[in-house]
Write a protein that binds this DNA or RNA. Sequence first.
DNA 1: CCTCATTGTGACCGACTGGTCATATTATAT
DNA 2: ATATAATATGACCAGTCGGTCACAATGAGG
Lengths: 228, 228
Amino acid sequence: MPKETFFNLSEDKRARIETVAIEEFAENSLNSASVNTIVSKAGIAKGSFYQYFENLEDLYQHILKIAQKRKLGLISSLPSPSGNMDTFRYLQRLLLVDLAFELNYPRLSQVERRHKFENPITSSIDPETGQRFSGDGRFHAFLSQGILHDDIATWVDTDLAAYALEVLSSWLSPYLLERLEQDSGKTIEANQELSSDPLVQDLLQNLLDILMAGMSRDPQIRKDFYSK
Amino acid sequence: MPKETFFNLSEDKRARIETVAIEEFAENSLNSASVNTIVSKAGIAKGSFYQYFENLEDLYQHILKIAQKRKLGLISSLPSPSGNMDTFRYLQRLLLVDLAFELNYPRLSQVERRHKFENPITSSIDPETGQRFSGDGRFHAFLSQGILHDDIATWVDTDLAAYALEVLSSWLSPYLLERLEQDSGKTIEANQELSSDPLVQDLLQNLLDILMAGMSRDPQIRKDFYSK
DNA sequence: CCTCATTGTGACCGACTGGTCATATTATAT
DNA sequence: ATATAATATGACCAGTCGGTCACAATGAGG
């Protein structure tokens, strides 16, 4: 945790440091990020840095917490909680969260992606259910409800599916953003409303159709192929 | 390209350097990898290093070429070329290539993944077809044949699907490997035949069923949900 | 043996790294 | 104005970085 001194800083100075740090951690892993670069870009003395943080990792963890906080903020700002929501919209909402995160905080999103890359799958056995459990659980929860609502077939391996969905969701956003930019020919500025862009909606629908159709039915297709 | 001196080296010395380098690049990006570490672990003098390579990037590119070469070797060692193959087996084969690569050269596979991470999507417009084109084209080719054989619906956005499949394939392998290890309780040694392990076959089948079922049919599912 | 080319070596260089600390500056309270 | 606490600063440290280079070792042809 950053020291008290850091939190006593003026709003703009703290924001400046955080912005610079986010940019640094988006481009470099914790090992290769540079304190000197950060203090120089942020316009503070090196000594000051060590009055605010124990070390680089201290700042890194702080940035990760910011990412977590902002993503939670986005989740609560998106329409309706997940209780009485049909399975299709549930998954759509999960993907939209990551997309909105990418649109609003692209560099922070990159920090998070890099973090996931450097600290990969931490799957383990859930002590409560005795089931395998990987990732942050969002997609496990989705799959559970989907199966409960009979919208997802029971033969689907939930841990595999959750892992695949998490990977997909994490990497889908930058793809959509880049495709959007190439389509409109201009850079997209941070705007949460852009997730309602027709092209994005279309592509998202496309992927959702594939996934939902694939997970909801019997794997008849395979037998079809074999009997051909 | 490495200098001639490097290729004149004895087989074991060259292999030793390459192995050490692969390990270093699996753990560090090009920026944070260390010449000193490599020469120290490989047991050669620093001066020697610069008689073999122009610089670190020179070695890095060499390692990437090794990865490419070995993957090609795996592709040609796997059953039957892609001409007269049904769509399901085609996709299965593509995923198996990455899986075999992970099993036989796990650290090299990690180097490749890291490389993809640091040098992300380079999608552009294919000058021949005028279509969008991202990744190495393996999955684009697959999708084209699938559509041709009427096994993949035409409404599927091929570039989005190809991107998603590439991401999935790249990240599926380490997941399967880890799951296999956790299931059998022991570490898996390099063995291409292990891709025929029942658990792996099962999980692969599971994912293939989802993907193929999802991509082969009309997106009826969506309308079902809306009319609920 | 000598010659010449190739290969191997590690001390050395300037630049940069994370981290420290004595000192200077500022703010607060009396 | 004075005293005290909180904050800001950059010179400085030991260590590591990529890269060089004068020199030593090795091998081949004669």
